[in-house]
Design a protein around this nucleic acid. Structure first.
Lengths: 135, 135
DNA sequence: GACAAGTAAGACAAATTGTCTTAGGGTGGT
DNA sequence: ACCACCCTAAGACAATTTGTCTTACTTGTC
């Protein structure tokens, strides 16, 4: 089993972005977005990227039709979470708290954002902590 | 001018962690931490990593003494900020807000953390928004 | 049965990354 | 003076990654 833990690369991410926007798509359709007016070379590039994404379990491939269809196996939010966790792993001893703190301290908040944040914190108050989730 | 924008790699990060903990250090001192009982090869590795870190402006090198001394040119917090921004750039159209939201929504907060967060939000209320900082 | 479009497989160079070797310089002890 | 030692400087090296492209084969359609 290939190491599925490897991250999404830049070119692969571009493909994912198209899938997130368009939903299930064929290679051809993705090509039209990424390389408008592109030829067979660009088509093959996208094909290869999707092959790698599938190997890493980041997209599902529907082979039932003649023309294969691809759809994301993880959403943008999940990827964000994954990257945040990886960042925390490397720089914060695995804890997400320093990231949260950093953002609140650093980022200039609009009054609206402040209100939304407060609301979210309220909300999380009612949500019981999930077992095993660590700080 | 070498592209100084390139990020810190894993091995380089290990060196940075030592510098953040110990402060200004010589190659030898870093070696003792990273490769206890290591030989000349390991020494050379650390040497090369520091050379690359210097080229990328992530450490300062004090050449006034016989034995050069190195100290971090950016702190852990700064690196965190840099990576968060890069993440936002790639996945959130440059805005840090989705990261903040994601963390608050996802992460299970202890009552204490909730309190601290609220305090930080309060605090940021008094701090005027910095010019040019974007959402 | 030939063509168009698709899939499958892999070649390829460039860049990155971690590691190691070698050469040379200055210092101190004897 | 000489030697041993520790340091810096420079670069060799293989493994891996990454984006791109070529080629060969398959299949449905007119």
């Amino acid at each position: 089993m290939a190491r599925s833990y490897r991250d999404i690369t830049d070119a692969e991410l571009a493909v994912m972005q198209v899938l997130w926007e368009r939903g299930e798509s064929s290679i051809r359709q993705i090509c039209h977005v990424l390389y408008p007016g592109g030829g067979p070379s660009q088509y093959a590039t996208v094909q290869k990227l999707l092959e790698r994404l599938e190997a890493k379990d980041f997209v599902y491939r529907d082979r039932t039709q003649q023309v294969h269809l691809f759809r994301p196996a993880l959403g943008r939010e999940e990827l964000i979470g994954r990257r945040l966790r990886s960042l925390a792993e490397q720089l914060c001893g695995g804890s997400l708290t320093p990231l949260l703190t950093h953002l609140v301290k650093t980022k200039a908040l609009t009054p609206q954002e402040r209100a939304e944040l407060r609301a979210l914190i309220e909300q999380s108050e009612n949500t019981p902590r999930r077992r095993g989730s660590k700080g």
